[in-house]
Design a protein around this nucleic acid. Structure first.
Lengths: 106, 106
DNA sequence: ACACAATACTTCGTGATATGATGTATTACA
DNA sequence: TGTAATACATCATATCACGAAGTATTGTGT
């Protein structure tokens, strides 16, 4: 899939992946993999960005000797998801502009 | 609208704007403006990119003392539109991933 | 005659960001 | 003993939308 087309959607997808309960990096990738492919470097970049934007909070916890970072969505994060849904209408306008056939009229 | 969300769509929108007949920069912006807003700098960047990718051809012609560049879509450009439509399915998968409500199960 | 809007295209710098490559470290398993 | 899986981090790179600024002409209002 075209990288550019994913832009602006991945952030929100990651938020959606944790909206029903906290999760951690590796699990997020696994959970999303049937629907969306993203590399580890991409995910951790996004998580950091969302943390800076206060759309999620992080807590570190040990699990089986390994350190894990658990991510939890904030209200701001949920608002971002709603905002995205609103913007989606404009995206559909663009899609329809592309996919509409020539009517023959003008 | 979020800039990032437009990415990967604008190129195809411009191709769509000329798919029913050749046009020129200024007119393309006017034609698209009810649906999609894009600045001149963005458009001419895109036109140059599409030309390099051989998705459109250009001819210069004088019109009312002013120089105009007329852009015409190529087969490769039309193929790009079709390719985009295919990729759209994956975009919708991402959108549904974001917009789906928690089922309560799992 | 003068100012200003509209038409038409160009170039430059900037910020955002998805990704591959690479690295570190532990656990599980064959 | 080695390899895969788990888990997170950093860096450099390429792509790209946009504002700002510039050039030049035509049309219009006063």
């Amino acid at each position: 899939m075209d990288i550019q087309l994913k832009r602006g959607m991945l952030d929100v997808c990651v938020l959606a992946a944790i909206k029903d309960g906290e999760s951690y990096g590796y699990k997020i990738i696994k959970d999303m993999s049937p629907y969306i492919t993203l590399s580890e470097s991409t995910l951790y970049t996004i998580l950091k960005r969302l943390e800076n934007a206060q759309m999620l909070t992080v807590r570190s916890a040990e699990h089986g000797g390994r350190l894990r970072k658990y991510y939890q969505i904030t209200n701001k994060g949920r608002e971002r998801i709603e905002e995205f849904k609103s913007e989606w209408r404009e995206v559909m306008v663009m899609y329809q502009f592309v996919s509409k056939e020539d009517s023959g009229y003008d």
